[in-house]
Amino acid sequence: MSTTTIRIEDELKVRVAAAAQQMGKSAHAFIVDALAERVEQVEQEAAFHALADERWANIRTTGKTVAWTDAKAYLVARADAEGSDTGRPRKPAARKLAK
């Protein structure tokens, strides 16, 4: 494990100490947890954007997509069916974009 030194304003240091105490952690543990959470968030955002770029490229290549009204109806039906024995609703079919 390596050591990293950070410089923070005195006011932030006081706030970190207070937040850490409120959570029953040391300031060090609080900072490490906060950094880990932020790194996880950045990684998830990067994965989300990569998936969005991939899907957009697929739409541009095939010209096919699902209309918002169809997608919304599917999601509503899926939410309504959750927890019931009716099964999952059928996914809407992709179709060519109107030009």
Rank of each mutant, 00 (worst) to 15 (best):
T3E: 12
T4P: 01
I6M: 14
R7Y: 14
E9P: 08
E9Y: 13
D10F: 07
D10Q: 14
E11H: 12
E11D: 14
L12H: 11
L12G: 08
R15L: 11
V16N: 01
A18G: 06
A19R: 12
Q22I: 06
S26D: 07
A27F: 00
H28P: 00
A29L: 08
A29G: 06
V32G: 01
V32Y: 03
D33H: 10
D33K: 13
A34V: 05
A34H: 04
L35W: 02
L35H: 02
A36Q: 13
A36C: 11
A36Y: 11
E37G: 01
E37K: 07
R38E: 13
R38S: 10
R38Y: 14
V39E: 13
V39W: 08
E40G: 07
E40V: 05
Q41F: 12
Q44C: 03
E45H: 06
A46P: 00
A47F: 02
A47E: 10
H49V: 09
L51T: 11
A52H: 10
A52M: 13
E54I: 03
E54A: 13
R55A: 03
R55V: 04
W56S: 09
N58H: 12
N58E: 14
R60V: 09
R60F: 02
K64G: 00
K64F: 04
K64Y: 05
T65K: 07
V66G: 00
V66Y: 00
A67C: 06
W68A: 08
W68S: 03
T69R: 10
D70I: 05
D70F: 03
A71R: 08
A71F: 09
K72E: 12
K72V: 08
L75N: 14
L75D: 11
D80S: 04
A81G: 02
S84E: 03
S84Q: 10
S84R: 10
S84I: 04
T86P: 00
T86M: 11
G87W: 01
P89M: 15
K91D: 05
P92Y: 14
A93Q: 11
R95I: 05
L97R: 06
A98N: 06
K99S: 07
K99I: 07
K99Y: 07
